[in-house]
Every structure is written in structure tokens, then in C-alpha cells.
């Protein structure tokens, strides 16, 4: 059974992708702060296919000891990583609050980088040609009012992914980003329907991005079917125009 680390599996897209992974025969190591009822039920239904690590990704310095030393150890190989957990601090730039910005960078950028560091080491130890998938956002490509700070974290992750691919390709390790469009999750729940409609109008399909479609793209990028795909940004966004 292949082991995949998924951050932020308690709800939203992370939960959706975790369900798809489990039903396709993967073992998921979920990292999130809370255990939602949905995640608990999934664990009940598939006890062998899901391990949950409760961890706050704002604690970057604790990743090595709490996740890798205490929980994972060296014996269990890691085949893939879905960097999904993120927070969206939105405001206009003239209101920028450094504390909130710094926390968002810890969760969205620094922690994924440190996780990647130790996951690559694990892959080297077990000689695994693993696959890393970052969930980026269309906001990094098409500007939206109020999302400058959030979008910048995704831009950072896209650059990191590209360079990960370049650096580790010779070991067979791949890294790609899925550039997701707006999805109906808690993250986007504060938008009113007028704002949402404005966003959906800016897409070819005129509708929200489907979490299932993003999840299945993630599964494709983890699988050998995508063995020649690396250093890419795949847009799963209803065709933003």
C-alpha cells in the first residue's frame, strides 16, 4: 500500500482528496489541527487506510520532532505528498497586518517547505521515485482584490515546486502544482453569492471548480500515469479567462 501525506484532510478539498485516495487503495497520513466528524467516520470505515496526526502547521519548528521523529519514524516509506492545508488571510494591502501575514506564511509556505525537506529525505532512504503535489490557487495568476497576500504564498509555492522538480528529478522525484479555481469550501464561504457569481463569470464553464476534479487530478499526478510530468502547473479552474 502506498503512503501519501495529505495536509489539511479534515475538511474541504483535503477531505475530498483523502476519500479518493483511500478508495483507490492508498494509505493516507493526514496532518491537521482538528479531527472533523467526516474524517472520524472515514477512519471508522477504513481503519487500515488512514492515520491521523494532529498538528498545527503554524509550528514550523516542531515538524521534524513531532511529525517525523515521534510519529513517522524511518521504517514506513512515503510515496507522495499533497500539500493542501492553507489559510487565506484576505484584506486590501493598505490594511496589511504583519502578524497575520507572518502566520499565513508559516502555514502556507514555510511548513510545506520543511515537510518537503524531510519527505525527500525519506524518499532517498527508501529509493522511492515519489510525487509531490502542491495545491496552488488561480489567484496567483489572475489578480483578485483582497487576495494579494494570500496569492503571494501560492506564487512562492509554485516557484518552490518548479525548483524541487529541477533539483530532484535525477532521483525520479516529481513535483507539480494544481492551480485550483474557486471551490465551494469553508475557505470561500465568506464570499457572498454576488461575489461568487462575479468570479464564476470569469471562467469558461461559468461554475465553481469541482473538488472531485481537483482531487482526481491530484491522484493522476501521484500515479505512474503521470510519470513524465514534472515541474508543471496544471490549471483545474473551470477555465479562468
Amino acid at each position: 500500500m502506498k503512503n501519501i501525506i495529505v495536509t489539511g484532510a479534515s475538511k474541504g478539498l483535503g477531505l475530498c482528496v483523502t476519500k479518493h485516495l483511500i478508495t483507490n487503495g492508498y494509505h493516507v497520513i493526514a496532518i491537521n489541527r482538528t479531527i472533523s466528524t467526516n474524517l472520524k467516520n472515514l477512519k471508522k470505515d477504513y481503519p487500515e487506510s488512514l492515520s491521523i496526526i494532529m498538528f498545527d502547521l503554524a509550528n514550523v519548528n516542531q515538524i521534524h520532532s513531532d511529525i517525523f521523529q515521534k510519529e513517522l519514524g524511518f521504517n514506513r516509506p512515503i510515496h507522495g505528498f499533497i500539500n493542501n492545508a492553507a489559510i487565506a488571510y484576505d484584506d486590501i494591502i493598505s490594511n496589511l497586518d504583519y502578524k497575520k501575514l507572518e502566520e499565513m506564511y508559516r502555514v502556507n509556505v514555510y511548513s510545506p517547505m520543511i515537510l518537503t525537506k524531510y519527505i525527500i529525505r525519506h524518499m532517498l532512504l527508501h529509493k522511492i521515485s515519489g510525487s509531490i503535489v502542491h495545491i496552488s490557487s488561480i489567484s496567483a495568476h489572475t489578480g483578485y482584490k483582497g487576495l494579494a497576500m494570500y496569492a503571494s504564498t501560492k506564487g512562492a509555492i509554485e516557484a518552490f515546486s518548479l525548483n524541487t522538480a529541477r533539483e530532484w528529478g535525477e532521483k525520479g522525484i516529481r513535483s507539480n502544482c494544481i492551480v485550483a479555481g474557486f471551490m465551494e469550501t469553508e475557505m470561500s464561504s465568506e464570499l457572498d453569492s454576488q461575489q461568487k457569481n462575479r468570479i464564476y463569470k470569469r471562467t469558461c464553464l461559468k461554475q465553481p471548480t469541482s473538488q472531485d476534479s481537483v482531487s482526481k487530478t491530484a491522484l493522476f499526478l501521484l500515479s505512474d500515469d503521470s510519470s513524465s510530468i514534472t515541474a508543471q502547473n496544471l490549471f483545474v479552474d473551470s477555465g479562468t479567462i
Binding site: F74, I120, R121, H122, L124, L125, W168, E170, K171
Partner: peptide, 13 residues
């Protein structure tokens, strides 16, 4: 540098 990365993790393990 990539060999040294592998060496590092093998020594850590």
C-alpha cells in the same frame, strides 16, 4: 550534494 543528502538521511536513520 544529492549523494550527501542521501548519506545524511542514512546516517540519521
Amino acid at each position: 550534494s544529492l549523494d550527501l543528502a542521501e548519506l545524511t538521511v542514512r546516517i540519521e536513520a
